[in-house]
């Protein structure tokens, strides 16, 4: 029973990936052929040239890395004041809003002010808009770090003679590391997967993997759309494989949504 359901789960996950893979090699695939009748690997071999897919992937990678570094760093430093704020509930509610709202509405709202600030249509504006979302997520996730227990750890270190700086570098950072890594991955993915904000703030002048995918679907080029989709799936797959079994850590906290 267990094995059957495991196989079912894997199939449910792998079958769509396999189909995308076949499509990314399909040069001609007329209806109703069960398989393509002409194959070509050019979506992959010409990654640097074809439709700028490679460039879009690199752009996505750059934006997502920047967003993840800034959001995680800023979130780590500021999450304590959220966790210890008197109006914590209200702050948490505010932080959840962009997600409950659907990023599209946030994007539509930011569009005009970004336009006036000269931030529309360029990479900085897109990264900033995604950063707002990613920062909110980082704070929600990392405010789970500031438990009474972590406070006790820091106090314990202080009475053993740790200066405030040592308490951060030798106690807090090592304790927070699993959570920080998780936060980095998740905020990276928020940016990596985002379509709405690239569309609205980028205004068609910033091409990332997600906007490329949509463009290819619109123009009927399912081969390149499938290749974009596979590239989009790559980082979450890597993250799943490397983080699949987190250490049973007393501190591995998650925000309750």
């Amino acid at each position: 029973m267990r094995r059957v359901s495991n196989i079912a789960l894997w199939t449910a996950f792998l079958a769509p990936v396999a189909l995308l893979l076949v499509w990314s090699f399909a040069w001609r695939w007329p209806w109703p052929a069960p398989l393509p009748n002409r194959w070509r690997a050019s979506a992959w071999t010409d990654l640097a040239a074809t439709g700028g897919l490679g460039a879009a992937a690199l752009r996505s990678l750059g934006i997502a890395t920047t967003v993840a570094v800034v959001a995680t760093g800023l979130g780590f430093v500021t999450s304590r004041s959220v966790a210890e704020a008197r109006a914590r509930e209200a702050l948490q509610w505010l932080l959840h809003l962009p997600f409950a709202l659907s990023p599209v509405v946030l994007g539509v709202g930011l569009e005009y002010s970004f336009l006036r600030a000269g931030l529309a249509g360029n990479l900085v504006g897109v990264a900033l808009a995604q950063g707002i979302l990613a920062y909110a997520y980082a704070v929600i996730l990392l405010s789970g770090l500031w438990t009474a227990r972590v406070g006790a750890f820091l106090e314990g270190a202080a009475t053993l003679g740790a200066t405030p700086r040592q308490a951060w570098t030798l106690v807090l950072l090592p304790l927070a590391r699993p959570l920080l890594a998780l936060c980095f991955v998740q905020t990276f993915l928020i940016s990596w997967f985002d379509y709405a904000l690239v569309l609205l703030i980028g205004g068609g002048r910033v091409a990332t993997l997600t906007t490329s995918l949509y463009q290819f679907v619109q123009s009927g080029d399912l081969r390149l759309a499938a290749a974009s989709a596979l590239l989009l799936l790559l980082p979450p797959l890597v993250a799943l494989v490397t983080q699949a079994q987190p250490r049973p850590d007393a501190l591995a906290g998650e925000p309750d949504p």
Partner: peptide, 20 residues
């Protein structure tokens, strides 16, 4: 695993789900 409920908005890109 990383598949926690909170990961909903960010585990599989909606774009890829739509294309699939």
């Amino acid at each position: 695993s990383m598949l926690t409920p909170w990961s909903l908005p960010i585990a599989v890109p909606p774009m890829v789900a739509g294309l699939s």
